[in-house]
Simulated assay, not measured.
Amino acid sequence: MITLGGTSTRINSDLGTLTLDVASGDAIVNTATTGTRTLSLGGTGQIVVVDAINQSGVGGTLAIVKDGVGTVTLSGTNNINGNVTVNSGRLVLDYSSANTVLQTDKRLPLTVEPLR
């Protein structure tokens, strides 16, 4: 599990595929109870986050920024309560596995730059 610290955290894959798959629980967690923490995912390679990205701190905000020409795939049941911004590359939401669901009671605020 990766626990976010400070105001921003960056995970890069510059070659090949970086897979975040933990034995149990969340892959990435933000426990902050105030303010916004930004998780930047990018690089020229691929990042696959198999397990959840979770904002667990009540009152805190978790934002995601996707940059770089690579692909980021999220396939866990994620709890992201901030903005999701795609500056470049691809962001894939993969809910094809039987043990993940897209939460219909949540909204996903998504910003794509540039919009094509």
Rank of each mutant, 00 (worst) to 15 (best):
Q103W: 08
T100H: 06
G43M: 07
G82M: 04
V22K: 12
Q55E: 05
G57L: 04
V50T: 11
G42Y: 08
V48M: 09
V29P: 04
G35W: 00
S24A: 12
G59K: 09
N81Y: 12
G76V: 04
S97L: 14
T77S: 03
Y95N: 09
T73G: 07
K66Q: 09
N78W: 07
V69D: 14
R37G: 14
L74A: 00
V69F: 13
N79A: 02
R90K: 11
Q55V: 01
I53Q: 07
G57Y: 05
A27K: 07
L91V: 00
A27M: 13
V84A: 09
D26T: 05
S96W: 00
G25H: 12
T61W: 12
I64L: 15
T71V: 15
T31W: 04
G82I: 07
N87H: 03
N83T: 15
Q46E: 10
S75A: 08
T100R: 00
I53F: 01
T77G: 01
S40I: 08
G59W: 15
D67Y: 03
D67A: 04
R37H: 14
T77M: 01
L41W: 04
N30L: 09
G59N: 12
N54V: 01
N99H: 03
L93Q: 05
R37I: 13
A52N: 06
K66N: 11
T31Y: 09
V49Y: 01
Q46V: 15
I28Y: 12
V50A: 15
N30P: 07
G59S: 13
V50K: 15
V22N: 11
K66S: 07
A52C: 07
L62A: 07
V69R: 10
N99L: 06
D26W: 02
D67S: 02
K66A: 02
V48Q: 10
V84K: 05
I80P: 05
D26R: 02
T61Y: 11
L91N: 03
G59T: 05
A32C: 02
A98C: 04
N99G: 06
L93S: 02
L62I: 04
Y95E: 04
G42E: 11
S24Q: 05
A23L: 13
G25N: 09
N30A: 14
A63N: 09
A98K: 06
N87V: 04
V48S: 12
I64P: 05
N30T: 04
A98P: 13
T33R: 14
V101W: 05
T36H: 10
T61P: 15
Q103N: 10
V50W: 08
V92S: 14
N83R: 08
G76H: 08
V72K: 10
V22L: 12
T33L: 14
S24M: 02
I53A: 03
